[in-house]
Amino acid sequence: MRLNPWVGITAIATLAFLYLPMLAVAVLSFNKTRYGLQWSGFTWDWYVRLLNNPDILEATRNTFVLALVSTVIATVLGTLFAIALERYPWPRRSQGFLENLLYLPVVTPDIIFAVALVVAFGAFRMVSSLFEPGLFTMILGHVTFQIAFVALTVRSRLKSLGHDLDEAARDLYASYGYFVRHVLLPLLTPGIVAGAMLAFTLSLDDFVISFFTSGPTSQTLPLLIYASVRRGVTPEIHALSTLIFLITVLLVLASERLTRR
């Protein structure tokens, strides 16, 4: 295929345009000056300070607790949901309803999602103080949008597996429990892992739903960065953002490796 050289030039320029913001942040994270954007020498200082900043450490902990717990719950629920959708003969109308239910969290704009959760937790609070804004409500919120993504990933794996091995296992007198544990789940593992990875990154990445459901003690990294943008960014935030960027890249590459096999 022969392309006009301008196509290549535009493409590279567009890519540069995508990377420019991250590059600027990374460069400034090594800059000695605290205020302003003038370059005045290289330093690791801001990275060292990160490790001694209790707020940032706390937010890091919250972010990972939130992502881990919600991913585990969403992976279990999403996998079950996918099996139910793909392996049971639901009547046509209920199947349509379930199908819509599956896509609903994907197509709802996240701000509406968040607002609906605010209203729901407001109502639940009248029953129990458990629903005060905090890590618990954030986990509930994250799981709700993660379920759909896990279910979609696992379901596509189920579809590509087909029914043959199910049939073979049952023909050979495997009980249903034995079949699920020793045939279905091992076969589904790549799909489940991919779904969980996706759910995990989505949770790390989420801002809007966290913003609306968080409380005073449940600051996560995106919320912390947003708050400090409002107050005026410090080089520590540049350093933190650079680290988050690098970690996400590694996570994405790792999940790519895992799912390719």
Partner: peptide, 30 residues
Amino acid sequence: PAQLYRRGLWFLLPAVIWILGLLVIPGLSL
């Protein structure tokens, strides 16, 4: 079919209840 549905509901209900309770009903209350 009855047996099959009964078992299928165990797979289905957790996620369906979760999404109904935290997205559909809140959406309707909106």
